[in-house]
Amino acid sequence: MELVDLIMLIYVFVLAMFVGFELITKVPPTLHTPLMSGSNAISGITIVGAIISAGLNDFSLSAVLGLVAIIFATINVVGGFLVTDRMLKMFKKK
């Protein structure tokens, strides 16, 4: 990766931050806990990197680190989305 590529990635990061700010300021306080657990699950997207690392041919150091990373990220993703759903199910109108 060249420095120019890095700057393109920074573009994406900055613009996505703006989108994030716009979206999240509209979330009412009532939903702040599910917002947190749900967004938390989204941050488990690191799983994509973990999958490629763990898929290496042998039990290399990279693959083992990838395995632990998959376990962590899967807990984050599965636990995050499930617990958010469990909470949101309870929010009912009269």
């Binding site: 990766m1 990635l9 989108v19 994030g20 700010f21 938390n40 990197g49």
Partner: peptide, 22 residues
């Protein structure tokens, strides 16, 4: 950034923004 993957950057930025606002 490490993996050169825009999806991770976008997803992470959304969560980062959410945490900062909260």
């Amino acid at each position: 950034f490490v993996l050169d993957n825009n999806m991770l950057i976008i997803a992470g930025a959304l969560v980062g923004a959410s945490g900062i606002i909260l």
